[in-house]
């Protein structure tokens, strides 16, 4: 999915290629996603992040098809700016606001997997600690206390920022996200958003391969959906 201002689309294609999928770029002015098994909204600055991050992109022509696809139970994944778009579109709860320290953060962070029931974490084990690069200015996840309680009850929190040993603490929270939340999913688990960039952690030479398991979850989840009676 390419909005004007998206910039991680080639990186996501590179990473999905590496794990053996057949990704194609779809421009935001398209309206049809027939034939695709899953959608990834990559990172970047769709529409310059002007007004509010993701606010203008959610009105792009393609978003109708994305919403329809989400309703079928197929994987719809938002990474970084894509996560922000999915929140603005109401496909995921909560919102993302400016980092606690009001500065852009580009560095690897540790994430603890909280559930393996989503389209991004099927291939990961609950409690597993991953090292994935974070790269955002508006990565600070916020939601009302009631929403957080509902999400926790429904097992919708995918990953939380932690230290290398998996401990969740304020010190391990890079951007002020409530409950150290770095990724969430909808009730069905097929729509998932993640602030750090798994596509930047797919080769040893880039410093980490911890993103592979997350990306491999997408086809695995799609297969689960397809084989469901």
């Amino acid at each position: 999915m390419v909005f004007p201002g998206t910039n991680c689309e080639h990186d996501v294609v590179h990473a999905l290629d590496l794990i053996g999928l057949q990704p194609e770029l779809v421009f935001h002015k398209e309206t049809d996603l027939t034939g695709f098994d899953a959608v990834v909204l990559p990172g970047g600055f769709a529409h310059g992040d002007y007004l509010r991050t993701g606010a203008i992109a959610r009105f792009s022509p393609i978003m109708g098809a994305v919403t329809a696809m989400a309703a079928t139970g197929a994987p719809v994944i938002g990474i970084c700016n894509g996560f922000q778009v999915l929140c603005e579109a109401g496909l995921l709860p909560g919102a993302l606001v400016a980092n606690r320290d009001l500065a852009f953060i580009c560095r690897p962070v540790h994430l603890r997997v909280e559930t393996s029931r989503s389209a991004l974490t099927t291939g990961a084990a609950s409690g597993e600690v991953l090292r994935i690069p974070l790269n955002s200015y508006e990565g600070n996840y916020v939601a009302s206390p009631e929403t957080i309680r509902e999400m926790e009850a429904a097992d919708q929190i995918l990953v939380r920022y932690c230290d290398a040993s998996g401990t969740i603490s304020d010190a391990a929270n890079p951007n002020g996200s409530i409950g150290n939340i770095a990724g969430v999913c909808n009730a069905a688990g097929n729509v998932a958003g993640l602030m750090p960039h798994p596509e930047r952690a797919v080769e040893t030479v880039l410093g980490s391969t911890d993103g592979i398991g997350l990306l491999r979850s997408i086809p695995a989840f799609a297969d689960l959906v397809a084989t469901r009676p």
């Binding site: 529409h47 310059g48 002007y50 007004l51 203008i56 009105f59």
Partner: peptide, 14 residues
């Protein structure tokens, strides 16, 4: 005012 111009255009598109 890039932010203003972009928002202006988005309103037009809607």
């Amino acid at each position: 005012d890039p932010e203003g111009m972009t928002t202006h255009k988005a309103l037009h598109n809607l």
